[in-house]
């Protein structure tokens, strides 16, 4: 049974096969209570399959897992009652009003009648939907729908919240407001498990797990990722003739990652330094180019990890 100091999530060797295809392959990790944990990976990498196993709606082929101390194979009913779940589709009833959606999910999660009205009011305030309580959900903008969906997902005050691609298709301002709300929840002790393929979004998390082809390739804090997971140094090169420079750099075999970011070319070099690059540019007849060392973004790390065999 559950104990409050058990990790929010702990899985060992979690594997899911669909026929011959391995969707999730021997994944092991744990999530601490109150942590914001991001599961980062491209589409089809096994993120959703993992989340469905954790929610207790898909049985793993191999491996064990506990969510809030409950076994994901045998105690799904307890898991379902104690988690919140929000998907990228927002799963709201468009023909129901804001209040009716909240009341419906409150009924589904058996929120006591006595505290229901206060809870609904509180969530409407949290989502910034005062004055729109009786508006049909269909008429809300994407950002409002997202915040209402979050409200519906936490109507029963779950200690663990699953977010499956929560900010897909929402404008940047709403995305920022959304993550502010998530951090407030985390500050109040709610554990948050979010899948995403947005790299900037993963930076909101305390720890990031990178999953690719069903395999957990790396697990660290965003700072650790940037500090240790990049093999080599990252340079930004600017020149008058960007395309010729790009072509020249792509010829070289000692550069593992050459790609265009705006007017700059980002280059990852395993060994060697700034002077090597500058002399190489001069040798190729490219003059007036600037080379500088830059701090990697999570995206640089992610691309580098994905390319590694």
């Amino acid at each position: 049974m559950t104990t409050d100091d058990a990790p929010a999530i702990e899985v060992h060797g979690l594997t899911k096969r669909f026929g011959d295809r391995i969707a999730v392959n021997d994944v092991t990790f744990d999530v601490k209570r109150g942590e914001v944990f991001a599961f980062l990976g491209p589409n089809g990498s096994g993120k959703s399959t993992t989340i469905r196993m954790l929610c207790g709606i898909l049985a793993p082929t191999e491996g064990t897992g506990r969510v809030l101390g409950y076994d994901i194979r045998t105690e799904q009913e307890y898991i379902k009652q104690n988690i919140g779940y929000m998907s990228q589709r927002f799963s709201l009833y468009e023909d129901l009003s804001v209040r009716e959606n909240l009341e419906f999910y409150a009924g589904i999660y058996a929120v006591p009648r006595a505290s229901l009205a206060a809870r609904v009011t509180e969530l409407i305030a949290m989502a910034g939907l005062q004055g729109r309580e009786d508006q049909l959900t269909a008429h809300l903008s994407g950002g409002w729908k997202q915040r209402l969906a979050l409200g519906c997902a936490i109507v029963h005050r779950p200690p663990l919240l699953f977010l499956d691609e929560p900010t897909a298709g929402v404008d940047p301002v709403s995305r920022r407001e959304f993550w502010t709300m998530i951090h407030e929840l985390a500050a109040n002790g709610v554990t948050v498990f979010a899948t995403t393929h947005y790299l900037d979004e993963a930076e909101h998390a305390a720890r990031v797990a990178m999953i690719h082809g069903g395999v957990l390739t790396a697990l660290a804090t965003p700072a650790d990722f940037k500090a240790h997971y990049l093999h080599g140094k990252l340079f930004a090169i600017r020149s008058a003739d960007t395309l010729r420079t790009l072509a020249m750099l792509q010829q070289r075999t000692d550069l593992s990652d050459v790609s265009l970011y705006g007017d700059a070319i980002h280059v990852l070099m395993q060994t060697g330094d700034r002077e090597d690059l500058e002399s190489a540019l001069r040798a190729a007849g490219i003059t007036g180019a600037t080379v500088e060392v830059i701090a990697p973004s999570l995206e640089d790390v992610f691309i580098s990890l994905m390319k590694r065999p």
Binding site: C55, Y85, S87, I108, Y109, F162
Partner: peptide, 13 residues
């Protein structure tokens, strides 16, 4: 179609 079934499946319903 609307994805609300998915939401109900992860709920205790």
């Amino acid at each position: 179609e609307r994805g609300t079934l998915e939401q109900l499946i992860v709920s205790p319903v």
